[in-house]
Design a protein around this nucleic acid. Sequence first.
DNA 1: TATTGTTATACTCTATAACTATA
DNA 2: TATAGTTATAGAGTATAACAATA
Lengths: 159, 159
Amino acid sequence: MTQDQDGSLREFVGYNIKRALHLVQTDVAATLAPFSLRMVTWSALSVIRENAGLRQSQLADILAIERPNLVVLIDELERADLISRDRDENDRRAYSLTLTEAGEALYQDALSAMRAHDDRMTQGLTTEERQALISMLRKVEANGKVGGHADGIGSLPTP
Amino acid sequence: MTQDQDGSLREFVGYNIKRALHLVQTDVAATLAPFSLRMVTWSALSVIRENAGLRQSQLADILAIERPNLVVLIDELERADLISRDRDENDRRAYSLTLTEAGEALYQDALSAMRAHDDRMTQGLTTEERQALISMLRKVEANGKVGGHADGIGSLPTP
DNA sequence: TATTGTTATACTCTATAACTATA
DNA sequence: TATAGTTATAGAGTATAACAATA
């Protein structure tokens, strides 16, 4: 049994996250391809379902996607008749997003496939470990958000 | 305190990995910018240092980067005088990659900054939790590798 | 024939600026 | 004037095919 050739990098949480995501994304793509969905369109369906009637800008905020990049994505979902985009009566600038019946049905089918995918990726972890993994990832995410505004790294040397 | 608006997605390990990586990458970019390094050039430096004399194709394998994409990256590091690219005497098709003195010095400086970055991102985790996080991420990565070859998802319904 | 490095290319993801229509 | 959605565009990151030199 040989040793890692990237052992120095394996000490960093970020590197391990990157390597894990690469494999996860490949499996997600294969899982969602039969439904003509990608990770991001699947995520959008899920959030729209959970927050029926929300605006595009709210969806962008929730998914941490830039508004311009969301437009083509929404176009795609609307063209596939998975969501409906209705003008908000109170604010005619905004759209109100909801799942169509077809969108709800596809979501349910894809959900089963995605749960199977998640089970594959977390094989060998106990239920508690899996929950701890998610909890720690969310802590990392939260830690990353604080430095973005304040001067968390402002005192770094500039060689 | 309000509830998550992406709660349905938060049940999936992959979504949490993606969201965490997004923040980590932003912090890494800010951390390495003063050294004119990116996450991938930093990774290359680290692996070359750990495996002095390795070939480009080996580096590509270790970092899971396609060979063509590595070329420009190596060009960049060589132009910055951080690595030397010498013809292998036994196999004149191949190059032998090693850190220069300047590369070693920059690596050490960046290493300190990267360790501080990692500490920031894992704030609130105990040493044991941090180690468990890395260990679980590697399990996820390993799980993703098995399905890639065999028919792990070949029997999915095709609606 | 196979492998190393290379070129060219294309596709996705992400990010920013500037516009329009409403408010 | 500010905001919602849009357009256009540019930069990364990632992927494949095909080539020259060497094995």
